[in-house]
Design a protein around this nucleic acid. Structure first.
Lengths: 198, 198
DNA sequence: TAGAATTTAGAACAAATGTACTAAAAGTAT
DNA sequence: ATACTTTTAGTACATTTGTTCTAAATTCTA
């Protein structure tokens, strides 16, 4: 399978962004790594911000696809929550520079900031729905006043575990994801009912 | 009270960093805002990294002072945990650019990264101690296996609530701090005992 | 195959930045 | 008052970067 120049640029940019951060990496670096001229690169993507937007879109598409796939499953909601979050963690890690440079990117690229705010709104509603649904199935038992904080905690953790791991975690990628996902899931554990078997 | 040039530089740099992020702000910007030459500024601080290190040191000093002050109190540990975290949140917010540009700064300035890793180690031990202490006083009741995840969650939240707030929270500074601190404190609520009166 | 569209390489330019240097000004100590 | 140190302003230079432009090469299409 042969990648188009556009795709090659995106793939290489993702690697460099993840390794070095979204600043430090310029159109010239990416072009140089690919062995093409930066003039050519700028023909496809005017600047690094455009590349970042394209990669962000890739991430969103992958997450949407995952959500669609998982909601079709017939497993119980607890299992779905577990697997959905695990696979989300894996996908997020692929695009980790977006999380590592979170604020900087949002400040620089208003389009991404707007989209992200909307995305968070949706995710919050999804969480609310899943929790209500688990509540009614007696998988979990959460006092009403604890629901909103729990969702906030979960969303925040989901966005920033990668940043913390980048500085503090010693271990390979798989261990990293597994460890932080386990810690993430532990947010819900105090509320699990006994009949939440899985 | 007249500030020395050094202190004026640090104060202005803090403002600019918080507003615009630690990149975008250069020695020339800071000098220009202060109405001094950048040559003069570089006489005091060779470059922005040195300024960032100095501000980081200010933050650490303030947090240490707070810790010392609070451990001298005779209140119960739950109250201390509450107040210590609240005032830590306030101090962190003063130096929020350090958290907003967390990964970037750690990557750029190895000295800060090393120090921060050591600091996290200490904070983890402090948390462990406080929790064990509250446990023995029957303020809280946490299953052994939930302690480590809870501490990890608390430390992660403490570091990154500012980043999340920067993008998503609409409201003034005091509301922001109060909201996120409340959410932070909610991490402990599932484990509070009834006799944890306050 | 001829012509058109797309893709590519490379040069050129302006702006910004870190860094170093010089010399003047201000302050301090003897 | 004189010599010395610290502080300040301003200049200069090399590098990097984003951006634009030109022309050649390649691919596509009819």
């Amino acid at each position: 399978m042969v990648l188009s120049t556009k795709d090659k640029i995106l793939a290489k940019a993702l690697i460099l962004f993840n390794e070095q951060g979204s600043d430090f990496v310029t159109v010239r670096h990416i072009a140089s790594e690919l062995g093409i001229s930066h003039g050519n690169l700028c023909y496809h993507f005017a600047n690094t911000d455009v590349i970042i937007e394209a990669l962000y879109q890739q991430l969103v598409d992958k997450l949407n696809e995952l959500t669609k796939e998982m909601t079709g499953l017939s497993e119980n909601q607890l299992t779905i929550l577990y697997q959905l979050s695990y696979r989300s963690f894996e996908i997020l890690y692929q695009y980790r520079f977006l999380m590592l440079d979170f604020v900087r990117i949002m400040r620089r690229i208003p389009a991404i900031k707007l989209h992200f705010k909307a995305l968070m709104q949706i995710r919050q509603e999804q969480f609310t729905y899943i929790i209500a649904s688990m509540q009614s199935n007696s998988f979990i038992d959460i006092p009403e006043k604890n629901i909103a904080p729990l969702i906030e905690q979960a969303l925040l953790f989901g966005d920033f575990w990668i940043s913390r791991a980048e500085i503090l975690f010693d271990g390979n990628e798989q261990e990293k994801i597994a460890y932080y996902h386990k810690t993430f899931y532990a947010l819900f554990e105090p509320y699990l009912c006994d009949n939440a078997d899985w």
